[in-house]
Write a protein that binds this DNA or RNA. Structure first.
Lengths: 240, 240
DNA sequence: CTGGGGCTGAGACCTTTGTCACATCAGGGA
DNA sequence: TCCCTGATGTGACAAAGGTCTCAGCCCCAG
C-alpha cells in the first residue's frame, strides 16, 4: 500500500510529483501543460532504502513505476535461491508496465539497489490518457517492442552462448556505452558487483570471477577497484 | 519481396485476403465494415511450403504477419547451429510485430513447419489504423504485455530450471490446455517432434528423449506414436 | 583504530547437460 | 512389397558450469 500515511511512516517522502517529473517521463512527454498538470496530480511518490522491495512477484499491481532517482534490480528467484536478473533500471526508466496491460499479477520482483525515489503511475490514470492520446500509445508500443527485442537477446544469450561469451558481450556494450578512451584502452566505471553481474548474465559469482580472471590473464581487460580497463576491445568482439 | 509476381511464380497463391480474414485477426476485430474492407485491400497473402523461411533474422521488415492457416516456428540460431525456439505460432496468431514498432530489423527467423497461408500486414497500413483507433492500440499493448510475460517465463525456465522440470511444465500446460480426460489419465495429441520440443525448451533432442524415458519409467507419462498419456498430473506438478 | 560485513580469488569436486556414434523403427512412396 | 527418410532410443564420453569452502581484503561504522 502506498498512500500518504505510508509516506510519513516511512519517513522517506520527498516533495510530491510535479509537472517537472511528468516532463521527464518517457511516453508522456508530449502532453499539454494542463493535461500534464492533471496527470501529475494523480501520481504518488515514495522513497525506498537500499535492498527494500518495491514490487513482489505474483502480487497484483496498482500501476507502473517511474524512477525519479536511484537504481533498482528486476529479477526472479527460483526455489533454491538462485536469481535471474532481467534488467537493471536507472533514473528516468519505467518498469512494471506488463501487469497494467495484461491484467495479470507482477511477473517479477523489483528491489532497490540504492536509495530510490519512485513514482507510481496508477493504471487508471494511464489508461485514461491512452484513449485520448494516440502518441502516448505509440510511444508505449515502441517501448514494449524494444523490451521484447532485449528479452529476445537475453534468451539467446542464456540459451546458446557460453558464460565467457556473455561476459564479453556485456563488457563490450559497456565499453561502447559508457567507456572513456585512454591511452591504455577504454575505461569503464564498475557500477555493479560480480554477484549482480552473475545474476544478470544467468550464472553465478564464482564462474564470473573466473572468467574475468582468464580475460585478465589474456591481457584483454584489467579489473580494478572502481573501474575496469578494457585493453583489447577487438578481442572482446571476437569472443561474441 | 512479396508481390503478385511472387504469388504466381511460387504457385502458392490462394484467394486474396478478404474482410473475413480481417475479422479473424486479433487487434482489429472492432473495425467498422468500411474500415475493415479498406484495411483488407492493403493486405497481401502468400503460401509457404514446409521448412520454407518466412522471415530472416537481421532483415528489415515490411510489416507483421497473420497466419491464416498452418504452423510456424520462431527461432534463433547460434553460430554452432544450435537453435532456440521462442514460440510456435498457429492459425490465428500474429508475429513479427517488434520491428514494426521499434524500427529495427527482424530479431528472429521464422520458418513454416507445415504448409502455411500467411497474410502480410504492411507497417504503414497498421500505423494509420493505430492513430485513429485507440482500441486497436489497446489490444496491441495487451498483446505485447502477454508476450513480455511469456518471455519472462521462458527466461526463468531456461536460466533457473533443469531440463526435466521444464519438460514437466510443458507437459503440464499441454495437459491443461488441450488434454482430454480418460480413465487412464489425460490424453494429449503429439503435435511436435522431440527435436522441436528440445529447441523450445532450450535443450537438445537426446536429453529430452532421456527425460521422457525417465518419466515413463516412473509411471508419470506414457509416450506413444501419436499421443502422450499423462498418468500422473500431480507428479508433473511436483516436478515444477 | 578496530572489528565485522560485504566483496573477491581460488581450489576441489560433482552434476547436468551437450556431443558423438550408432542401432532401431515406423510410414510413405516408388 | 521394399527401401529411404525422418524420428527415436541409448551408451560412452567430454566439458561447461554450479556447489562448497575458505582465505584475504577493503571499508567504514562504532
Amino acid at each position: 500500500m502506498i498512500d500518504s500515511a505510508d509516506r510519513v511512516i516511512l519517513g522517506s517522502m520527498v516533495r510530491p510529483p510535479a509537472v517537472d517529473d511528468v516532463r521527464r517521463m518517457p511516453h508522456v512527454g508530449s502532453l499539454s501543460d494542463s493535461d500534464a498538470a492533471r496527470f501529475a496530480s494523480e501520481l504518488m511518490v515514495r522513497g525506498y532504502e537500499p535492498r527494500e522491495v518495491i514490487v513482489v512477484e505474483g502480487q497484483p499491481a496498482r500501476g507502473f513505476y517511474f524512477i525519479r532517482s536511484g537504481k533498482a534490480r528486476i529479477y526472479r528467484m527460483a526455489a533454491d535461491g538462485r536469481e535471474q536478473t532481467f534488467r537493471i533500471v536507472l533514473e528516468g526508466d519505467t518498469f512494471g508496465e506488463v501487469p497494467v496491460f495484461d491484467g495479470g499479477p507482477s511477473p517479477t520482483t523489483v528491489e532497490a539497489m540504492e536509495r530510490c525515489e519512485i513514482i507510481l503511475v496508477p493504471s487508471e490514470s494511464f489508461h485514461r490518457l491512452l484513449w485520448s492520446h494516440p502518441e502516448v500509445a505509440a510511444a508505449l508500443l515502441s517501448h514494449f517492442a524494444k523490451r521484447l527485442r532485449a528479452f529476445t537477446e537475453l534468451i539467446e544469450q542464456i540459451s546458446l552462448q557460453t558464460v565467457p561469451s556473455r561476459l564479453a558481450r556485456y563488457l563490450y556494450q559497456l565499453a561502447r556505452e559508457e567507456g572513456q578512451e585512454t591511452p591504455q584502452g577504454v575505461l569503464v566505471p564498475r557500477s555493479i558487483t560480480q554477484q549482480d553481474l552473475a545474476s544478470l548474465l544467468g550464472s553465478v559469482r564464482e564462474v564470473i570471477s573466473r572468467s574475468l580472471r582468464v580475460m585478465e590473464e589474456d591481457g584483454i581487460v584489467e579489473v580494478r577497484r572502481k573501474d575496469i580497463l578494457i585493453r583489447d576491445l577487438g578481442a572482446l568482439r571476437r569472443m561474441l
